[in-house]
Each structure stands twice: as C-alpha cells, then as structure tokens.
Design a protein around this nucleic acid. Structure first.
Lengths: 198, 198
DNA sequence: TATCCTGATGTCAGAGAATGACATCGCCCT
DNA sequence: AGGGCGATGTCATTCTCTGACATCAGGATA
C-alpha cells in the first residue's frame, strides 16, 4: 500500500496544522515499513504533505526525527538530580534520576520498543543514540557539580548511571516477559555495584 | 600554502605505493589545517595523488580515516582479556585491558592528542568515536563471557572500563602537566570505585 | 477598511557524500 | 607472447543538506 498524505483538520489556516508532528509520524511509519536507509527525506515530506526543505527546517538531519524526545528526557534527569536530597550520595542521586527516566519509557512502552527496533537496525542511528546518551551523562554530571560534587566523581557517577540505563534497557527490550523497566534498572544497579566492587 | 601531492618513491610500479597511508596523511593534514567539515574528500584525494573514488574504496566514509587504529586497539583489549589469569575478578581483568590500551596512547602521545583535537571540534566525529568505544565494550564483554562471566556482569564491567577510559583520557588531554595515562587510568579506576560504591 | 508585517512554507540552485558500472593497464604467471 | 588480476580511474547518479529568495494568509495597526 502506498500511503497518501497525512491530514488532520481541513484547511483551517493557510496550511495544515502540526507540520512537525506530521513529519514525525510520516518518518516513523516509513522507517518501520522500509527501514531507515531505504527511506528518503523527500518521501517523508511528501507523505506529510510538505517539502523536503521544510523537513530540514524542523530537523537538523534525517536521524533527528527519532530523537525528538531527548530534550524532555534530559530535563527530567537534570531536574531529578537538582531536587534530590542534599545529603544523598551522588551515585544514589543518579540512580533515582535513571529510575525516573526508566519510568517514562515504561509509560510509553509500545513507542519505545518500536523506536528501538528501528534504531537497532541501523548504525547511523546507534551513533546518534550514543551521543544523546553521552549528552545526558554530561548534563547529569553538571547537575552534580552544581551540588558540590567534585570531578571526576561527578562524571564517573553519571557515566555509571548511563551504562546501567543502556544495559537495563537492552534487557527490557530483549525480555519477552515484559518486566518492569524501573525494577530492571534497580536490579541492574545492584548487579553493577556487585560487578565493579571486586 | 597549497600543498602539492604527497609522493613517496619515484614511479616504482604503476602507482605510487602506500595509497592508504597517503590518504590518511593527507586527510589528517587537512582536517588539522582547515577543520573536518571544511575539508572535502576530493581535496584529500587530490593531495594524496588519487581520486575521490579511491578514497571511498579504502574508507567507508570521510570520518573513518581518523579511526583507522580502532581495529588494533580492539585486538589489544580482547587479547588482554583472553590471557588474564583465570581466577581474576572480571573488573580487574577489564582494568588491566584498559591500562594496556592507555599505554598505547601514551606511546603515541603526540598523534593521540592531535587526533583528539580534531575530534573534539566536530560532533560527527564524536559520534563515530562513541560507537567505536561501544564496540570495544562489546568486544570486551564477549571476551569475559567466553571466560564464563555471566551477563549482565560482563557487559557492566566492560562498560565501566570504557567509562573510566573516556574520563581518564579526557583528564589526560586537558592536563598540561603531561601526566602518565596508565597511571591516570589507575587513579580514575580507584575514584570510580569510590564514587559508585556509595 | 487599507496597508504593512511577519512567519511558515515553497521554489530553485548547488555543493558534497557516497555508490555502482565499467574502463584502463602495468605486473605477474605460465 | 599472451592472459588474467588487481589497483586505480572515469562517469553517472542518488541522496543529504544548505543558502537565497519568493509567496501569501492572517494579525496588527492606523
């Protein structure tokens, strides 16, 4: 089937509303159906009823559509770190933040799994994911520093948290038994402590 | 100054020898002088006395030139893991491997710093670096698994090692006092343990 | 109401990355 | 001498991404 343009309302204004949302929806649909590489930006734009040029006004590149939520995730992590109890150990603060992040993935379980299935099939997308994760680690480290945690402890704690998130997420995706991601994160943190304290 | 083609010997065979080496040398030169983005593959190829098409026969993309040594590094890590004492704790094995990797950077100090200065100025290159590091972690984890270390401990230990490498390397690059990288890695491992055992 | 302005989108042109198909031609082997 | 091989060149093409400029509905303003 060849999908026609995605429309929402009828000509309310000069253009259909929610251009960015239509682009995201169109891109995700095509990435899932044909794969990321086999999808051109022109096709995405056409499906969204827009032009290629407009796509690049909303997204820096073809990959970025899939990482639209990264900003909100970073805010969640940073605010969780910022509002943690003063007396708490840095690694415990990071643990709380990562658990909170895990909860949001759990809430959007279907979407998260779909998105990951696309990413897992393409190296370029994995690269983008890794740099987003590194950015998250950097933001959490900065949050810790603002709370007086010195380097390199701040960065090391943040990196540890991201490592746990990565591996817990991977377990979550591969597990058919639908475990709870926050719980998996807690378990993985414990295993991490056991594995690295040798 | 506009550099002319890089030549080695005089027409020994049909072509100048060491085409790949000339490409690496030319690319590095231009990346340092003009920056990565401002350098085109056509320019690199011309400086190496070759064509654009030949560049892409040796390197999958423009970035890959800078990660030429990753294969050897991975072999070093894997073989270090493989030959570690049987009784050793997994995290200690990883620590040894990372230290060995650090030693090779220390040996090529100038080149490592130059390379990193190029990478640090460009996001695309940082993405490639991160996925290479992830690949190293994956290889080390597999090495541990072959020694009977179960998941998720194997992956967690490997990721911890890579996190330490990243941060120790960063300290090494930013430190003007020329500290010893293997020693910095040892110190960072100790700080990591302290930071994550809270 | 007439006019101006703004912002979202379209149109066009172009550089540069990357890839496939095929040509070239010294060198080595027999 | 002849033939095949392998490294390189040539050519054409698709696709990503960007800059410059055009368009035009709707809101603000006089």
């Amino acid at each position: 089937m060849s999908p026609t343009a995605i429309r929402y309302h009828r000509g309310m204004g000069r253009w259909e509303p929610n251009a960015q949302g239509r682009l995201v929806q169109a891109a995700l649909l095509l990435y899932v159906e044909r794969g990321f590489e086999q999808t051109t930006v022109a096709e995405i734009a056409k499906l969204a009823g827009l032009t290629e040029r407009t796509f690049f006004r909303y997204f820096a590149d073809k990959r970025e559509v899939l990482f639209w939520g990264a900003g909100a995730l970073q805010e969640l992590l940073v605010s969780t770190v910022a509002t943690a109890p003063e007396s708490e150990a840095p690694i415990a603060t990071i643990r709380s933040a990562i658990e909170a992040a895990g909860a949001t993935f759990q809430e959007r379980r279907e979407g998260s799994l779909l998105r990951q299935s696309v990413i897992s099939l393409n190296t370029e997308l994995q690269e983008r994911e890794l740099i987003k994760l590194a950015s998250l680690a950097g933001a959490m480290a900065q949050g810790l520093r603002q709370r007086g945690v010195p380097e390199p402890g701040a960065s090391l704690s943040a990196e540890a948290g991201i490592a746990v998130l990565k591996i817990a997420f991977e377990r979550w995706v591969n597990a058919m038994g639908e475990p709870d991601l926050p719980q998996l994160i807690r378990d993985t943190f414990d295993e991490f402590k056991a594995a690295t304290s040798g």
